[in-house]
Design a protein around this nucleic acid. Structure first.
Lengths: 252, 252
DNA sequence: CTAATAGTGTCTCTAAGACAATATCGT
DNA sequence: ACGATATTGTCTTAGAGACACTATTAG
């Protein structure tokens, strides 16, 4: 068989799976859906589905995200305005999983995408999922499980990779702002870092650092007192893709 | 159609493409093969090929690498001993490319892998390739081309992503040692950084930095004078996956 | 000897971490 | 006033970059 012979290719199914992360109540949470049919019926799984003919991979991920959560995603550059009543979310490709036996029925290659979203109302169940929930990732990692039951397929592994990507990427990019509303305070951003890394940060050093890193934050002019205490300045993301100097994770 | 209905999936072909990088004569070079058949007949392309039924993705990448170069690859953890007469190479997944029209004949999703190898004898042409060569990446990037002709398919984009991954990953990992022979000197390692980043580094500060970073280098005891001048200590890779503090790319 | 590369030391400056102190709100 | 959060400032220390200097080889 020649290298690119189109008439003799082995048959594969291609799916996308989504690691959708948000910060809720000071904890990093992942979106799970309950499978309504075999295999793994009744198990919790990552949202996802088949890539359609003629549809790009990121496009498929974006579509599945909208179907299951109503979220509108923007890929890395060029933040599309979100439609009214919906919120924007960061979307990027994570990795591809293609172990021959990862699906018991047939050969499935799944391209996983990572989505970072601000805190949202409880997800709506969409598609074939018979339920959806946010679960704190600390409960899902380790022996990956929900109430003692692991996630379907290799989704525990995919989730772990997604969480690790998010934890490392907020070090050297302004991606942590994707977990915040369009306007946010330094304190809110700090609580995002604390939740994602699972650490406690010094508010004074954090403030000096983020406001002193070029391109990280843009003052929007307003102030808010929604956290109580002295009113805090509001910022929007400066959109810098790479932070210099980077934010450093403690205890390393 | 339900989310994972195995009887109604759209047909995809799945391939692997390889971005194989090495440092030759103080330049970062990529391995290209010449296509022997349409489409893009006569164009230079990345090595690659179909994933076989029952074969994992990394396994397919490893097989294609061996077929086209004789290189034996090791995935990130657990460096397998290379077979006699062959050299080991680092292999990791890069990204997946699935634009619906990326192959003019049919729907092909390609999982790209990044391979970092020490300098080697000129590659042997294998498989259907009617030729193979190392090309400096500085000539291939920008308006991606070889002698004014772009690479086949979207391989220019894949190559650019692979080079960027290599450039950023040697900052915070000991991966640069994958470009060196098993035993190497600090000067040889510095020339790797200079070639990959396209910069000139201060030999004195570089020496202080790499020898002072825990887990980066292990003294092997021997010395060599293969560079001329005062004999240099030989080191092996310390295997640290994450460098702390990281190597910093100048001019940022 | 000179040329070349290896390796050490010294100085300056940036920035991280540990705090003290002040500012401005809700109650 | 009190408690909470925001923000500024100060001190100490680690580490990056510039660069003088010494060490050890080949020719």
């Amino acid at each position: 068989m020649s290298r690119y012979d189109p008439s003799a290719f082995p048959p594969f199914a291609v799916t996308v799976d989504l690691v959708v992360l948000t910060v809720r109540e000071h904890a990093l949470c992942a979106l799970l859906v309950r499978r309504g049919e075999p295999p793994y019926q009744g198990y919790w799984a990552l949202p996802g589905g088949f890539v359609r003919p003629g549809e790009g991979l990121a496009e498929a991920a974006s579509r599945e995200l909208a179907e299951e959560t109503g979220l509108r995603a923007y890929s890395a550059p060029g933040h599309d305005a979100a439609a009214p009543g919906t919120a924007g979310a960061h979307l990027e490709q994570l990795a591809t999983y293609g172990h021959p036996q990862r699906d018991p029925r047939m050969r499935v290659v799944s391209v996983a995408y990572l989505v970072l979203a601000p805190d949202l109302p409880t997800p709506r169940a969409g598609g074939d999922a018979s339920g959806a929930r946010w679960a704190p990732v600390t409960e899902l990692l380790g022996p990956n499980q929900v109430d003692g039951v692991p996630l379907a397929f290799d989704h525990g592994l995919i989730l772990a990779d997604g969480v690790e990507r998010a934890r490392s990427k907020i070090e050297y990019s302004s991606l942590a702002t994707a977990f915040c509303s369009p306007e946010f305070t330094v304190g809110e951003l700090r609580r995002v870092y604390e939740a994602v890394w699972g650490v406690v940060l010094d508010p004074r050093n954090f403030h000096r650092k983020v406001t002193g890193t070029p391109g990280f934050l843009l003052p929007s002019g307003g102030t808010t007192t929604r956290q109580g205490g002295r009113p805090a300045q509001l910022f929007t993301s400066g959109g810098a893709n790479v932070l210099n100097p980077p934010m450093l994770r403690p205890e390393s």
